[in-house]
Simulated assay, not measured.
Amino acid sequence: MKALTWHGKRDVRVEEVPDPAIKEPTDAIIKVTTTAICGSDLHLYEVLGPFMGEGDILGHEAMGVVEEVGTAVGTIRPGERVVIPFNISCGHCPMCQRELYAQCETTQVREYGTGAALFGYTKLYGEVPGGQAEYLRVPQAQFGPISVPEGPPDERFVYLSDVLPTAWQAVEWADVPEGGSLVVFGLGPIGQMCTRIAKHRGYRVIGVDGVDERLDMARRHDIEVLDARDQHVPDKVRDLTGGRGADSVIDAVGMEAHGSPVAKLGQAVTGLLPDALAAPLMRTAGVDRLAALHDCIDAVRRGGTISVTGVYGGMTDPLPMLKMFDKGLTIRMGQAHVRRWIPRLMPLVMDVADPLGVMDLATHRMPLEEAPLGYEIFQKKRDGAIKVLLTP
């Protein structure tokens, strides 16, 4: 089969690789019909190379048609259309019983002390072959796959794999009071959906970014926006909220925030080291680019909540603890517990009125063969790229 494989920093290639096969009774094989490039994939493209292996298959946002199931899989059958959550969870362990599916004890990667295994996402999360491929082996298929009906286009459902549950959880974790205000830093795919979900739930929403196309997309959905290029955003937020700051803030940016030159240099230098040296250094002394998170801390009101959904990977990040403690902030974060939010999201996705605008998120639709170009334009924010969908 054809699959997108990792070969080094900014070096991804579509190659012929062996077809996946059933290994465990709880496995399934799906023929991928649509997959997507996630902002988190760009961290593999740029920063997290020391945890990648030559030829690793990328991608964790996929849907398709079931080809084959293991003997212990009775919830789906060949020919059924399914979306695959990006985290791999069993559905029955103590963490899953608490609906903390991203911490599944069955698939935790204990070698690295991390949570549930993820598709296509480094040795830290199991090095499970990903979904930017023609076929995908799905472990724990007795629980994970989400059945969707025939008829509507893939684009209506594929975001249930990651984007929509991640955004819903980010808004849920933000704990916005009724009629309150929410600022979303970063208007990539997750940030866009955070703003739309929050608006749907009746909050005042302000989106922040410094890319014209992202600001324009948010405006199309009646989101109030601030351009991060021409003002000190926390000061402007206070101006718009009676001088006290937003009730809640979402950081949808993560470890590669603009405006963090020293940490950017540190990431670049670490990336030049041999993997045998760089990986332990990143696990013990790595730093993130924290400009967006610092703005979140500054922009939220006293007693407010910060919800962090952008991916961070540093172990020695300096945080303004005095300010955070003095302001009495609550901070919630983590990978999305995908299956937990599907019952709330499915009716919105199925609504022909498209209240969350799922049909207005993808800016580029490409064949799998053009995936390297998709990564390049997404990473460099060229050609108006906000969300790239791939068709194997």
Rank of each mutant, 00 (worst) to 15 (best):
V249W: 01
V249D: 11
V249F: 02
I250S: 06
I250L: 03
A252Y: 00
A252G: 06
V253P: 11
V253H: 05
V253C: 13
G254L: 06
G254M: 07
G254K: 04
M255S: 14
M255E: 15
M255D: 09
E256I: 08
E256A: 13
E256G: 11
G259I: 04
G259N: 08
V262S: 01
V262C: 01
A263F: 01
K264C: 04
K264V: 01
G266Q: 12
G266Y: 01
G266H: 04
V269Q: 11
T270H: 04
L272A: 12
L273V: 03
L273Q: 11
P274I: 08
D275G: 05
D275M: 02
A278G: 06
A278R: 04
A279H: 01
P280Q: 13
M282I: 06
R283K: 14
T284C: 03
A285Q: 13
G286L: 05
G286Q: 04
V287S: 07
D288M: 02
D288W: 00
D288C: 02
D288K: 02
D288V: 03
R289M: 15
A291C: 08
A291W: 06
H294L: 13
D295W: 00
D295Q: 11
D295T: 03
C296A: 11
I297A: 12
D298Q: 12
D298F: 00
A299C: 09
A299E: 04
V300F: 10
V300Y: 06
V300W: 09
V300P: 07
V300D: 10
R301A: 15
R301W: 03
R302L: 04
R302F: 00
G303V: 08
G303Q: 11
G304T: 10
G304F: 09
G304R: 10
G304C: 12
T305K: 06
V308N: 09
V308W: 03
V308A: 10
T309I: 10
G310Y: 02
G310K: 05
G310M: 10
G310W: 00
V311F: 00
V311C: 08
Y312F: 14
G314V: 01
G314C: 05
G314W: 00
M315F: 02
M315I: 00
M315R: 09
D317G: 07
P318G: 09
P320K: 07
P320L: 09
P320D: 15
M321Y: 11
L322A: 14
M324S: 13
F325E: 12
K327I: 05
K327M: 12
K327G: 12
K327F: 05
G328W: 00
G328Y: 00
L329F: 12
L329C: 15
T330E: 13
T330Y: 00
T330I: 06
I331Y: 04
I331N: 10
R332L: 11
G334S: 11
Q335S: 14
Q335P: 01
H337I: 01
H337V: 02
R339Q: 15
R339S: 15
W341A: 10
I342S: 15
P343W: 05
R344M: 11
L345W: 10
L348N: 09
L348F: 02
V349C: 13
V349D: 15
V349E: 15
V349L: 14
M350W: 02
M350D: 14
D351Q: 07
D351S: 10
D351W: 03
D351M: 08
V352I: 09
D354V: 09
P355V: 02
P355Y: 00
P355L: 03
